[in-house]
Design a protein around this nucleic acid. Structure first.
Lengths: 205, 205
DNA sequence: ACAGTTGTTCTAGCGGCGCTAGCGAATGGC
DNA sequence: GCCATTCGCTAGCGCCGCTAGAACAACTGT
């Protein structure tokens, strides 16, 4: 406990921190790529260490364990999902305001499925693999709140059931997505199911 | 390849087959109980063998491997789920025919969530754990077809979109269920979400 | 320039996993 | 009573997540 003694060269410490951050991201990216190409069951600490050309214990110095790595990948996924949903929502909303036919929700829903279909392993890390990431909780990471916020933003702010509608839409899309990804409903007709779901949710007949 | 030679005593063979079937079920039940009390990650072939008081290889003589055991538990789950959904549906339909307010779907949806909440590990084996059980496939087990059939039966046979409606309702309920079970949406308000979903699906405003 | 201290990475190994080869003991047929 | 077959067991393979402690490198003050 030498307190603030031995601070060392500031720039040296900065460089080390930078290198460490780079390696941190390298591990996340390697785990994600390995999961996306061979599935999460192929992501072992040994194989991952070999990929990043460091020994196993290095992984444990960055993340608490394998769960921590999956968690980090999932968090990255939530940030990207939020960006994708926002892009879809804004691109629709700038072509005129919501007109009650669910144009916004349709665009967000399609973007949601598209995201999951393009990054199935990433989606699994976010929603399927066992994790301690909670949503409606005080210590929920901002990335998760933002993603949910995109669903909320697809509904009329004046709607008293706005939050509940966002929850139900999101969960329903999630159900369609997981069943589609695991091959339990045919993906060929997936967009039609999403169309139907959105139509029903926004009250169209 | 001694064809039908060495048949042995018929009754003896029958007793053996009976005992083997009992042990088969014993393994399934033990795996299910262990999963329900300690989670699927605690279900290992070693622990399971200890529970049923046989050695590990016995498990492999009954099921191809751990996946086969999970699959057997899942199949049992589909049979029970079908029974639960049918009970709910018939108990509603015998109190008068469908009137367009989604009484049937509401009962089926509630029974669905109730089933998952009561047997979370069983539900996971059926829908979350990696498995090769396909749904819309030629060799889909009857138990799975029957479960889906209960959703179909909740809609008007005259509706041309009947099958699509069943798919979407089922997937949406599945989404609410998984997010509820993993703590991603609060379970305290889960029935309200299901109410809202059903209302939206059947076209109520 | 150098000795000491601090921090970081690696080698090696623990217990447990899914799974299987091959042995030994019952069991039923001649 | 001997043989053939069936059946469950012991033992072990290669892998897993994870960690203790050695080996090394880097930075410090003199």
């Amino acid at each position: 406990m030498s307190s603030a003694a031995s601070l060392g060269s500031m720039s040296t410490a900065a460089r080390r921190a930078r290198e460490r951050a780079q390696r941190h991201q390298l591990i996340i990216t390697a785990a994600r790529e390995l999961a996306e190409t061979e599935g999460w069951e192929a992501v072992t600490t040994r194989r991952l260490a070999e990929r990043v050309e460091y020994s196993q214990p290095v992984l444990y110095s960055h993340f608490g364990g394998k769960d921590g790595i999956v968690r980090a990948v999932a968090l990255e996924g939530f940030t990207e999902l939020t960006a994708a949903l926002r892009r879809a929502r804004e691109s629709v909303q700038e072509h005129g305001p919501e007109d009650g036919t669910g144009r916004t929700l349709r665009a967000v829903g399609m973007a949601y499925w598209d995201f999951a279909a393009r990054h199935p392993a990433l989606y699994q890390a976010m929603f399927v693999l066992p994790t301690d990431l909670k949503f409606a909780h005080e210590e929920t990471p901002q990335a998760l709140r933002d993603a949910f916020g995109e669903f909320v933003a697809a509904f009329d702010p004046a709607d008293p059931e706005r939050l509940a509608m966002a929850e139900v839409s999101w969960a329903s899309l999630h159900g369609l997505t997981t069943l589609g990804m695991s091959g339990r409903v045919p993906t060929a007709t997936q967009t039609e199911r999403i169309e139907l779901l959105v139509t029903l949710l926004v009250g169209g007949g």
